[in-house]
Design a protein around this nucleic acid. Sequence first.
DNA 1: TCGCCGATACTCT
DNA 2: GAGTATCGGCGAA
Length: 201
Amino acid sequence: MPKLPYSFYQQDNVTDLAVQLLGKQLFTLVNGKLTGGTIVETEAYNGIADKASHAYGGRFTPRTSTMYEPGGISYVYLCYGIHHLFNVVTASKNTPHAVLIRGLMPTVGLETMLERRKMNSLAPRITAGPGALAQALAINKALNAKDLLGDEIWIEDNGISFGPEEIVASPRIGVAYAEDHALLPWRFYVKGNKYVSKPHA
DNA sequence: TCGCCGATACTCT
DNA sequence: GAGTATCGGCGAA
């Protein structure tokens, strides 16, 4: 299956791009283990204009500098001291847009994922939620700022796409501090899918 | 099945 | 020194 080209990642409209990522296949190859699945939940972060973004107001720190790179690389960071979160950097250089991947339907490397998650049997929580899927795919800071057309972490298009009636737009999660921007419907997920994180619809 | 609550360490002020 | 784009265990129904 073809990997998504740079032209896909460098689109300016980050919310459109977040919708288009639903149904794409995310893979990692870590320590010789291939794991991956279908993306079923995303959130858009709209650069310097978005109060919920780390780059709000043009904030530029060692951590956020990755987001200012041209679209087509990963942005991985630690949240709440425990969880790694995986984002796709989008748009062109110096436009710090990003899409957070929040939910994945596992298809490849189930045994490896169960082992990494310390689970005995398959349950939706194996990859439902951004911290959970990062652990299942062995995503950590070593995978920050990686080329998404490389051979450690990448996204493929296998032709799966969801119709508008299958996609739900809702407010983003955990960003209540973003005031008026907290209610923007920039979280997108596949209706009824078991691998979507908490608030289902 | 649902909702509450605490863990935990890194980043920036 | 404070705040954080979360998860999972526990108890109640």
